[in-house]
Write a protein that binds this DNA or RNA. Structure first.
Length: 287
DNA sequence: AGGATAGCCTGCGGGC
DNA sequence: TGCCCGCAGGCTATCC
């Protein structure tokens, strides 16, 4: 499940394939997964998708990420925003490499290098929880989507966490999953960060002490960086831009280890629904 | 208005 | 073996 570390891996692995490349052709096989926006007199509105909006003829300048969303920014300023949702893959398919042909919703073919097309970009998303959004500028992307997200979880500070939680009485786990509070944390890393911080997921957010919030704010980037370093978590579909699976799931202390012994104290890990999400924690280590 | 809930969607694994 | 059900979960819309 692509959370921040997985999207960051995709960004890192696709950057060398895409930056500086001009897209000769863009193909959208399933138009319903893409929304195109254009600035009109009355602000940004949805328009019919065009190939130009999908970056056909554009040269890629940069790949940028905020939370779990990725933006492919063209030199012209046009932007293609990609969200992987649950099962999405954004991959560089090298010539001869195999990518499962089902649920391929969009493809981009760059201008061949010295007459040789050595690969192309593929967007697959079986469950279609992800999607594409196009904008005429980075500013439009921000206004339409990114401005409503909280600060990026990778550079989270204690002050940001405190401020965005406010006086919320929600379980802290539920608040961490809310992208308006912090952008990038999903079910896996919420559980991992709470375990590392010794905080029980059901605690009301406003019941956490200043010290606990500071620890949590520090541990969220720690957990995410650790996962990025080991390639992200591959539970089912996730692969990076080169099609490689991650190994971070092998290191998870609580996620996916329900009933197993806590790695610290040996107590069986407990499971419950918190914020409508399966949550695993150690009843001894987390209070 | 914050917070809970339903629904989207496919693949897979458990149980019978 | 095969079928059905439940579950996985990021995010939005809707309701209370």
């Amino acid at each position: 499940m692509p959370e921040l570390p997985e999207v960051e891996r995709v960004r890192l692995t696709l950057t060398p394939h895409l930056v500086g490349r001009t897209m000769a052709r863009a193909r959208l096989h399933r138009p319903d997964i893409c929304e195109c926006f254009s600035a009109g007199a009355k602000g940004i509105k949805k328009v019919r998708c065009t190939r130009a909006a999908l970056l056909e003829g554009e040269t890629v300048q940069e790949l940028r990420r905020h939370g779990k969303q990725l933006a492919i920014i063209a030199r012209s300023g046009r932007v293609l925003c990609v969200h992987l949702g649950m099962s999405g893959q954004l991959r560089w398919k090298a010539k001869g490499a195999r990518v499962k042909p089902t649920h391929v919703h969009a493809e981009w073919f760059p201008v061949p290098k010295e007459g040789v097309l050595e690969g192309h970009l593929v967007f697959r998303d079986p469950r279609r929880f992800g999607g594409l959004w196009t904008f005429e500028s980075l500013e439009a992307l921000h206004r339409a989507r990114w401005d409503s997200l909280g600060p990026d979880a990778l550079t989270l500070t204690a002050a940001q966490l405190r401020e965005n939680l406010g006086a919320s009485k929600r379980p802290i786990k539920a608040a961490l999953l809310d992208q308006r509070v912090i952008a990038g944390v999903g079910n896996i890393y919420a559980d991992e960060a709470l375990f590392l911080s010794g905080v029980a997921p059901v605690r009301p957010a406003n019941a956490l002490s200043r010290g606990e919030l500071t620890k949590l704010a520090r541990n969220i980037p720690v957990v995410l960086r650790r996962s990025i370093a080991t390639g992200g978590s591959t539970l089912r579909d996730y692969v990076d831009g080169d099609g490689k699976m991650g190994k971070a799931q092998e290191r998870n202390a609580v996620y996916g280890r329900s009933g197993k012994a806590c790695l610290v104290c040996g107590t069986p890990l407990r499971t419950a629904q918190v914020g409508q999400r399966t949550t695993v924690w150690c009843p001894e280590c987390q209070h």
